[in-house]
Design a protein around this nucleic acid. Structure first.
Length: 559
DNA sequence: GTAGGGTTAG
């Protein structure tokens, strides 16, 4: 129903104004009917105004419908305002506002609201528990969740599938065993409860377990597939992620926006431009449009994908064509330019963002990480210093440890090693490994072995062996450059002692649609002899031009 | 009703 017909509809009912009880009831019913067919926020606000004008604001069934609609539109502020005016909310009214917060950025507030409910006359029901337990799961409030588990059992909701599923989700955050226990006790299981368990395995990085659950599931929907694909993509198993996507399409499961975002992030990581372009086409054809609001995130993922594949200009084209851009869109394109070393362009886009009247966006902490990174890659030290102050003074954003890491990276890359060191020593929080690592990187670049050994000492004390590995290699390279062979020997001894293994650096290239991965020393490729012949040829040519390999920094653990 | 995602430094 469009706005025009709703307005006409209302006019019919509102005139002539009357206060007789029978027509009042008719109006009430008419308004409720309109609520049920209401499909946009504008319609909703109009109808809501009429509800207020005619004094139906204390009718529970109308209120909970209004709340449900505001929550559905993501207008929590409005919902909360409506809720605040209710004298003694019924359970259904409580449920709507709790549901709203449970799915929001601040699920903890849903738990607070539940506690307020528990202090009133209203009795929590199955809906209440399924919302509030899922809120606990989403905000990591396990202890509160466990207490609720007790009340669930006491209140006789222990065999409610929805509540049980929320409980599985709650326990899946910790170890998957407890989640499994609740799941095993369920008498009936829906595809959602299977998916919840599956995501528990994925979250605890038990891929074999996840695989078993996935194979065992009686029914798989788009969420099941996406859980697997995203899980693989986030854990460096991008090829697996993409082959799962292939299987998913063969199984005739249609990808939605969330699935496409997961696929695109795998494409970005692995450089699969061909599949990335296919997704772009798929989106442009409108084949996955269900909720339009989510389309923005797909475009954001496209920007990230093109930029990661080295096609920043293509990414920029997507960016410009978007009907609406979020802060993430702006940040992604800024980062895209920054990573290509096109710092000036990144900063120009940032200026555009600040003055943009098209999108009502503010830069956030991550946007500033992007611009600082841009300065770092382009060597724009003064601009970086200025922006670092600007973010606090103008935008009220407190720099996080990552911002200090960026600044240290920027300063030490540019050779301002002392300034970087002072910043590390005076920053308001304890410097972490990334911060010391950035300083160490700068020391290596500018061959300052003095400061390098200080940074490295800090690094190797607190770190676990896997993480320390990279830094130890870096440190030994610095010592080698300074010809401090005794220190080199000491570091190498330490590496053997800790038993570290540095994960090898890898790269990918796409040829005729197939993505090939390369690792140093790898001989498993079917054309390996041809490949190494070419590597030899390139090396010979480079040497003829008078280039030499930087042997000092070639230290690897396999030697 | 309950389940799945995204932007950083290296």
């Amino acid at each position: 129903m469009d706005l025009k017909s709703i307005v006409c509809d209302l006019k019919d009912y509102l005139k002539p104004p009357t206060s007789s009880s029978s027509s009042s009831r008719a109006l009430e019913q008419r308004l409720f009917h309109l609520l049920q067919s209401c499909n946009t926020l504008r319609n909703l606000t109009q109808i809501h105004t009429q509800i207020v004008v005619h004094g139906f604001t204390q009718k529970s069934y109308i209120l909970s419908k209004v709340l449900a609609l505001y929550v559905g539109c993501g207008c929590l502020d409005n919902a909360l305002r409506v809720f605040g005016n209710v004298k003694s909310p019924s359970t259904t009214v409580w449920n709507q506002i709790i549901r709203g917060y449970a799915g929001s950025e601040t699920p903890g507030k849903a738990v607070e609201l539940y506690n307020r409910l528990a202090a009133t006359e209203a009795e929590p029901d199955g809906y209440t528990y399924s919302y509030v337990v899922s809120a606990c799961a989403r905000s990591g409030m396990v202890r509160e969740g466990e207490q609720l588990h007790g009340r669930v059992l006491g209140g006789g909701f222990g065999s409610n599938v929805f509540v049980q599923t929320s409980l599985v989700s709650l326990y899946a955050g910790g170890g998957v065993e407890c989640a499994r226990k609740v799941f095993d006790e369920m008498r009936e299981r829906s595809v959602v409860s299977w998916n919840t368990l599956l995501s528990g395995y994925v979250r605890s990085r038990d891929f074999d377990g996840a695989r078993r659950v996935f194979d065992e599931m009686p029914e798989r929907n788009v969420v099941s597939w996406t859980t697997m694909i995203a899980g693989c993509a986030q854990n460096g198993r991008c090829k697996e992620a993409l082959s799962l996507f292939g299987r998913m399409r063969k199984a005739d499961v249609e990808p939605d926006q969330v699935a496409l975002v997961a696929v695109l992030s795998a494409c970005a990581e692995i450089g699969d431009l061909r599949l990335g372009r296919w997704v772009h086409w798929y989106v442009e054809e409108g084949l996955c449009v269900r909720a339009k609001s989510r389309l923005v995130t797909v475009y954001n993922a496209l920007i990230h994908m093109y930029a990661s594949c080295g096609l920043v200009d293509e990414a920029y084209k997507v960016f410009k064509q978007m009907p609406r851009r979020s802060t993430v869109s702006w940040t992604s394109i800024i980062v895209g330019f920054a990573k290509q070393g096109r710092g000036e362009e990144a900063l120009r886009i940032f200026q555009l963002m600040l003055s943009s009247e098209l999108d009502d966006v503010r830069p956030d902490e991550i946007t500033f990480l992007g611009v600082l990174c841009a300065c770092s890659h382009a060597g724009l030290v003064d601009e970086g210093r200025r922006l670092f102050k600007f973010m606090t003074q103008t935008w009220g954003l407190e720099p996080r440890i990552e911002h200090y890491g960026c600044m240290v990276d920027l300063l030490s890359r540019a050779g301002f090693l002392n300034e970087a060191h002072v910043l590390v020593e005076t920053m308001p929080m304890e410097p972490n490994d990334a911060v010391w690592g950035a300083l160490l990187g700068g020391c290596m670049l500018h061959k300052n072995s003095e400061l390098a050994s200080l940074a490295a000492q800090k690094l190797t004390v607190a770190l676990d062996p896997d993480q320390a590995a990279g830094y130890l290699v870096l440190l030994s390279n610095v010592y080698a450059s300074a010809k401090r062979w005794l220190d080199v020997a000491y570091v190498r001894q330490k590496m053997v002692h800790v038993g570290v293994k540095k994960p090898p650096g890898r790269s990918w290239v796409q040829i005729n649609g197939a993505v090939h991965g390369f690792v140093a020393g790898d001989r498993t490729h079917k054309h390996e002899s041809l490949i190494y012949e070419m590597v030899g040829e390139i090396t010979r040519q480079a040497q003829q031009e008078g280039r030499e390999p930087g042997t000092l920094n070639m230290l690897s653990l396999e030697e």
